[in-house]
């Protein structure tokens, strides 16, 4: 097959997700197709409970669909074991979450170092982590624990962690959901700057149309079906 556009980094074809609920089978996703090209930014909008987080989890290989195919970085996730999917993510896929999800037992520096080491990063993980944190303006707070940082600072650490290994794809789940307007704006600015700098593809899940408007393509998920927003 010959294509003029470069191969997508994330590609979902006809994915279906249903779970058994108390009232019988419940369909969350009813045949979703989505293809994300390298360095492209895609926003997925949707009300809470619309299935957008489920879609994100499937695209990132955190879960498997009930039907259809998901390819991440040219690998068929359905053919990989859970550990193999984790290995695929290591260093090549970054995450930014609404609730930051830093490891409370590690300092800012150690949190970032962990990603680098898990990805089998060649060279000095400590230096790489320091550089990533300096990039997000946290040079003076390397040895602080998450509980000693403000929400905005924690999200900066999360961004440094996400970009430290120069990933090909970044998944962001409501990255400003727990932040005030001003801090949220700064975080988004930082996120898009780094995305451009490293040429990372971005899949952004949000309910905020303003935030979504910064992405090149926008979809809205309604009742388990993906449509253009």
């Amino acid at each position: 097959m010959v294509s003029h556009s470069p191969a997508p980094v994330v590609s979902a074809s006809g994915i279906v997700k249903s779970v058994m609920g108390p009232a019988g089978r419940l369909s969350i996703l009813k045949g979703v197709d989505l293809h994300v090209a390298p360095a492209e930014a895609v926003a997925i909008l949707g009300a809470s409970g619309s299935g957008k987080s489920t879609l994100l989890g499937l695209l990132a290989g955190l879960d498997l669909p009930s039907g259809g195919e998901v390819r991440l970085l040219d690998q068929d996730l359905g053919r990989l074991s859970e550990d193999a999917r984790a290995g695929l993510r290591a260093g090549r896929v970054g995450f930014v979450f609404q609730s930051f999800q830093l490891l409370p037992a590690l300092t800012a520096l150690e949190n970032v170092m962990l990603t680098l080491e898990l990805s089998g990063h060649e060279g000095d993980a400590r230096a790489g982590a320091r550089e990533a944190l300096e990039q997000v303006g946290l040079g003076p707070r390397l040895d602080h624990y998450p509980s000693q940082l403000s929400g905005g600072e924690q999200q900066r650490v999360a961004i440094a962690r996400a970009f430290a290994a120069h990933p090909q794809v970044l998944f962001a789940d409501e990255p400003t959901g727990n932040l005030d307007q001003q801090t949220g704006d700064q975080i988004i600015q930082l996120l898009f700057n780094l995305k451009s700098a490293y040429g990372t593809a971005l899949v952004l899940v949000t309910h905020d149309p303003d935030l979504a408007s910064r992405c090149e393509r926008r979809y809205r998920i309604t009742d388990g079906v993906l449509g253009a927003a």
Binding site: E82, R89, L103, P104, L118
Partner: peptide, 16 residues
């Protein structure tokens, strides 16, 4: 549980 989930998400194997 959270720590484990985040580590797995970042690419750590179950073994690790």
């Amino acid at each position: 549980s959270d720590t484990s989930a985040v580590m797995r998400c970042l690419g750590a194997s179950r073994r690790f």
